[in-house]
Design a protein around this nucleic acid. Structure first.
Lengths: 237, 237, 237, 237
DNA sequence: AATGAATGAGTGTTCATTCAT
DNA sequence: AATGAATGAACACTCATTCAT
């Protein structure tokens, strides 16, 4: 059984390494890593925080650890983010913005409806694997009854666009006769996420319960095929 | 939007008592309070712990709070369960045994295959709602990479029976010609769980992202119908 | 370096049993391990306590551990000895009675004075090695400013006999012309104890400071010769 | 009988009182008390810890008490010393460095060999009296089998210098014909320490056993004379 | 005589946060 | 902008002791 967790993240960093503190030019890019660079410090803190929150949840994360990983002074965290929860909220917001942005970039509107859906299923699956923090952050946020997300305004704007994307695909599918009518795009969205998310978030207990390494390469490929099949059967006439 | 979380659990406790079969006379109220009844004390601790762990996760749970809720001395927790983690492990084990036991009691073998699957989807959905702790406990355990479940031997025995139950249904369906061939029972199992679990565990963030009260009565009913439909379309020829 | 501590007590128990004269039927081996035997239980508790106190000091000793080692209920300790300190006092008293009794049994009065002194030095040295608890108990008692020993009446009686024993030897030596006059028997007594006690109680730090295994067989033999020499030179004319 | 213990230490602190917290102008004087002076805080903690460890041993010492005496926050102890044991190790290391440094400052090489030895015996005796913590710390460390001292590197360096000091004295004495040959400097060192250390560490039980106030002024003076005599007789031709 | 359950006051340690520079 | 020192409230866990049987 893969000890490591999500595929291709041997130490949980490989994939996420793109956003690692040691790499100045990265997802949260610190352009000029000079000693006094507010943006760079902020970015390093956010990056370190994302990892720490993902690994241990909001409650289990340690401010000291975040500061150390970010090579920043603890005081800076409070300077820029007010509190641990403020920091968490920012990290969470960013995580949502990131995934929604990536989804919208998929440009599914130009594809044949079935192809578009398959792409979405595949993207979702792969995104979760490449960004394992996203899942843990969302779980943590739900443990806290979404109190941080509630405060966020940006999220809602992004979410609407995302839902309407799926709505459009469904409508196009119905009009071309490949999809059946009456499918709720929200339910579909939830199901697309669910069949990937659940498998991955519960990979540890799942591997025990089913006595099978759920994170083995072939297992992951098989699951993706199964999920695509599930969704296509669900929407087909 | 329902503030409370899972339906029908006003304080998150009302429903749960029903599954604490170890305590004969319901969850918290112990008839002869606190006087020298090892089993009762143990049961009260387990019950209180389940709630506290479910609410706050392993890391966020407070031993003092558990002791207080159980009307027991903190020392007793260590007397009976060695450590906070030992207590968590027992709670988790019990939770798994409970759900697996309930599933096996469904007696799906006597039903028509399609009917059997529908029952299973419905049962899973309803079980998660009535036992919201189960979901949170499992999430917490996965955050800790299943280190507690790994130690449990009972779990595996129960799990095998559970998988073979679905296998049998599928086989019967194939032989009567209502199900298609080649469906992996493990994948099916995961999917049945996923489409319910994900919806419920992410009900807080989901309600925000989709700007819809996912826990409203009609929403829940609609989701169940959608899920049954999803599974039946998945297995049908 | 000998990990175990004092020589010849592999588990710190082998030898000690022999000198636990307070327990009629020896230390650990309870000949008739019947269920209800007050004396046997008491003896087992005292024996276990001696070891635990010796190992960890009064403060560091754990009542639970003593009860467990003695295969007795914790409540019995309080039944027979009132409190942890009461137990310690009894253990300490016994330890003193034991060594004083053994010393008086040496029958040094019949020996040539120089021979008698050598015997005493040798006995003291060997007793400390065979009964390492004695040293630790005394250290612990001194940390507590002898508050327990103060309460003991027996001790003083034994002590007087012991001092007078050395006084007699010295007097006989003076009268036969082998010892010089004016030697304070108390000072001599203290010195005889000191040169053995210090070496053994500080064997761990000593082995580091002097970069030498103080507990090696030859080292112990050499020290004994050195000590005998020291005392004889001290008293000789 | 002096209740107090070591001479001139009415409450066990008088001599050590020079470094006590209640005395603002003292050995570790916190000129600007408590405001942002890392070195001063560290020093106050070390000082308070030395007293508390000396009084109660490692196990009996209370971190809260140390913090309070040091007028420092408990958290600071962990900030600077990692743990209670880390603090103990530092205290112990300092204690050894202190005595070894003082010994080397004696400049015994310029004295006549007999005079040099007498000075060393006297110094050792007086040092133990003025620094009663040293004895208790060493006792405590031996109870723990020197696990903390083992980790220390500095100690060994200091120790070697110390041993070679005595070696030199002995050699000089032999060459001038006042000392006999073949005396092991390590054994001599141990004996010099033993005859003072034992007397003082066991002053409480000793005063009871010998029914004599071992800490009375004249008793201490007499003991010193006795010890000098013991050592000189030991080494003389 | 003997036991296992139960307890309250600690025990070392950790945490998010603020202060002084 | 940035930092290391400092804090108080908790935290998991432990202990000697007593209660009920």
């Amino acid at each position: 059984m893969s000890q490591s967790g999500l595929v291709a993240t041997a130490d949980g960093q490989a994939v996420m390494g793109e956003v690692m503190d040691s790499t100045p030019a990265s997802a949260t890019p610190a352009k000029k890593p000079r000693i006094r660079d507010a943006e760079a410090t902020k970015a390093r803190i956010l990056d370190a925080a994302k990892k720490e929150f993902a690994k241990n949840g909001l409650g289990g994360a340690r401010v000291d650890v975040i500061a150390e990983k970010a090579r920043a002074n603890k005081r800076m965290i409070y300077h820029y983010f007010e509190s641990k929860e403020g920091l968490f909220q920012t990290v969470l917001e960013n995580a949502y913005v990131d995934i929604r942005t990536a989804e919208l970039k998929l440009n599914l509107d130009h594809l044949e409806p079935r192809e578009a859906l398959e792409r979405l299923v595949r993207f979702t699956w792969e995104y979760y694997q490449k960004n394992p923090e996203f899942i843990t952050l969302v779980n943590s946020e739900n443990l806290h009854r979404a109190k941080h997300l509630k405060k966020s305004e940006v999220i809602k704007v992004y979410s609407r666009k995302f839902v309407s994307m799926v709505t459009t695909i469904l409508e196009r599918g119905v009009s071309t006769g490949v999809f059946r009518q009456g499918i709720d795009p929200v339910q579909l969205n939830i199901t697309i996420a669910a069949i990937g998310y659940y498998y991955l978030t519960n990979r540890f207990t799942g591997s025990i319960v089913f006595e099978r390494d759920l994170m083995a390469k072939e297992a992951l490929e098989e699951r993706l095929r199964f999920n695509i099949d599930t969704i296509l059967r669900l929407v087909s006439v």
